[in-house]
Simulated assay, not measured.
Amino acid sequence: MTDHGFDFHTLTPDVQLNAIESVGIYPQSGLLALNSYENRVAQFVADDGQRYVVKFYRPGRWSNAQILEEHAFCHELAQADIPVVAPIYREGTSLFTAEGFRFALFPSVGGRGFEVDNWDQLEAVGRYLGRLHQVGAATPFQERAKFDLDSHLYQPRQVLNEASLIPEGIQATFFSDLDHLIDAIAARWHTDWPAIRLHGDCHPSNILWRDGPLFVDFDDTRNGPAIQDLWLFLNGSRADQLAQLDTLAEGYREFREFPADQLQLIEPLRGLRMVHYMAWLAKRWQDPAFPRAFPWFADAKYWEGQVLAFKEQLATLQAPPLTLYP
């Protein structure tokens, strides 16, 4: 299951420029590469004076139907006055193809970084996520994937087993502790929640701050429990997380009932993300961009640290789940 295939080596600047011009937009500046590894993303200024972002999708990851469903969701959110960056339509479509690459164009928008420790901003994020989930709950995705143990836990476990990146001296301990963590997550996982359309990867770096939050990068949008879009804002001590959770809930409740019955999923979801992230790096390691960007991933100290992280997450899973203030 390791990705031996694609490293974007044929996506040259000329290919990118020709692709953009094929849909009637003509760059007048160079392409400024933006921070993206799964896909290739660049910003440019066109001859109409507008700034755009072009996103070239990694082949084989999503089907055309899945990408178009993502785009349609973004437009549905934008039409509901929820601040998202939606793709641009040209001649009735938002997904284009050139020389074997699929790509989309977006308006380039600016903004400051979202301040996680700013209570007013955190409450506003909760408010807008309540609105986003209102729209997301109207109807589920038909093509996009769903949060489940297979895609985020069992398949990643297989990827790590096949990747041959873990130092031989700690392999037995690593996989033993990983399997203990997997068993603990599976024992606490349940699917007794409505599957709604989510942002899917709603961490602070995917929010820009203007007059309020602006949600970007819906590449990982999928069906799942509402709490998935909320727990990534929780950090620090348990007391810190309780205060953050209460602030998010205060804003969220203005538009939608807060999913308090899903709080027990927070630590299982944190464990899923931990395992899935390692497997994502391992699966993409043949792409030269990944060793350059994540050199520590090949260091034995990283894998030793993950063994400790497994133990810490296992202990957290055994603690009582977070609860809202009464």
Rank of each mutant, 00 (worst) to 15 (best):
T93W: 06
E99S: 03
Q155S: 01
G110F: 05
H75W: 14
R127L: 14
I88E: 10
F73L: 12
E115T: 06
G111T: 01
D148K: 08
W62P: 04
A78S: 10
G60E: 08
D120P: 00
A163P: 03
H133T: 08
R61C: 01
V159K: 06
L105P: 02
F103T: 10
P59F: 05
I82W: 05
L160S: 01
E69R: 04
Q142G: 11
A86S: 15
N64V: 09
F96M: 06
L132N: 12
V159N: 02
R144G: 15
P59L: 09
S164T: 11
P140G: 11
K55R: 14
F56G: 09
G130M: 15
H71A: 09
S151T: 08
V159L: 07
W62D: 05
T97R: 07
L77I: 09
G126W: 06
G100Y: 03
D81H: 15
Q155A: 10
W119R: 09
N118W: 12
W62S: 04
D148T: 11
N118S: 14
T93I: 04
Q155I: 13
A104P: 09
G100I: 04
K55Q: 12
D148P: 10
V109L: 05
G111S: 00
R131F: 01
G92P: 14
W62H: 10
I82C: 04
V135L: 10
L122R: 02
W62Q: 07
E168H: 10
Q134Y: 13
L68I: 12
E168C: 06
R127Y: 14
R144C: 14
T97M: 05
E115W: 10
H152V: 00
F103N: 03
F147H: 13
E76S: 14
H75I: 13
R90F: 03
G113V: 00
Q66K: 00
F147L: 15
V125H: 01
Q79M: 13
K146G: 06
Y154V: 06
G60N: 06
P107N: 08
H71Y: 11
R127F: 13
A80G: 12
D150R: 11
P87V: 01
D117W: 06
R157H: 15
E70W: 03
V159G: 05
D117E: 13
Q142C: 09
R102C: 01
V135A: 11
D150H: 09
E162F: 01
S151A: 10
L132D: 12
F147K: 14
V125S: 02
Y154T: 09
G92A: 13
H152L: 02
I67D: 13
Y154M: 07
P156N: 05
G60Y: 07
I67C: 08
Q134V: 13
A98W: 15
E162P: 00
K146M: 07
N118E: 14
A86T: 13
A104L: 06
R61N: 04
I88N: 10
Q134W: 12
R58W: 00
G110E: 13
E69F: 02
V159M: 07
